[in-house]
């Protein structure tokens, strides 16, 4: 009896497209680059999202105006705890837009409300307050428009 060898064709092994070392280095670079970009974006978003700090000079110079109602609006705007301001947000927004649209201090309260609803998903009536804040901001006197430019797209994103 005779044994004949049989040869079976196997697929040619595929050479790796990149050496293991190059792949490791590439992944390392991608990881570091991603980390740097992520940190930069996170920092920028965090800075943009921060409530505009109340100017200390403004609060110190919060002198009586002779109008007790305006004084109270101004106090809420820059001195009152945010929780107190949010409790009367609808009234505050209507009052500032209709009566005190030219008062710079009062408008700081609108910025605080915008910042709060953007940064606090748990805020009560968030979508509704965001929408009315957006309308007030979009119709703000032109001199105030720059204060809200950063907030408008973020308020629009709240559903």
């Amino acid at each position: 009896m005779r044994l004949d060898p049989i040869f079976v064709l196997a697929p040619r092994p595929k050479p790796p497209s990149m050496s293991t070392r190059r792949a490791f280095v590439g992944m390392g670079i991608a990881f570091v680059t991603g980390g740097v970009i992520g940190s930069a974006c996170g920092y920028a978003a965090g800075r943009a999202g921060q409530a505009k700090p109340v100017d200390a000079s403004t609060t110190e110079e919060l002198q009586p105006t002779g109008n007790a109602d305006l004084d109270e609006v101004r106090r809420l705007a820059v001195k009152a705890p945010i929780e107190e301001l949010m409790r009367v947000a609808e009234t505050f927004l209507a009052t500032v837009s209709l009566q005190y649209a030219r008062d710079e201090v009062a408008w700081q309260g609108v910025v605080r409300i915008a910042a709060y609803v953007v940064e606090h998903p748990e805020a009560a009536n968030r979508a509704r307050i965001a929408k009315v804040t957006l309308q007030v901001a979009e119709r703000a006197p032109s001199i105030r428009q720059d204060d809200y430019a950063v907030w408008i797209p973020r308020l629009k994103g709240i559903k």
Binding site: L70, L76, V88, T95
Partner: peptide
């Protein structure tokens, strides 16, 4: 939103 109000100031 239509803002309907009565009164003035923070008593609105």
């Amino acid at each position: 939103l239509v803002i309907i109000s009565i009164g003035t100031g923070l008593r609105r």
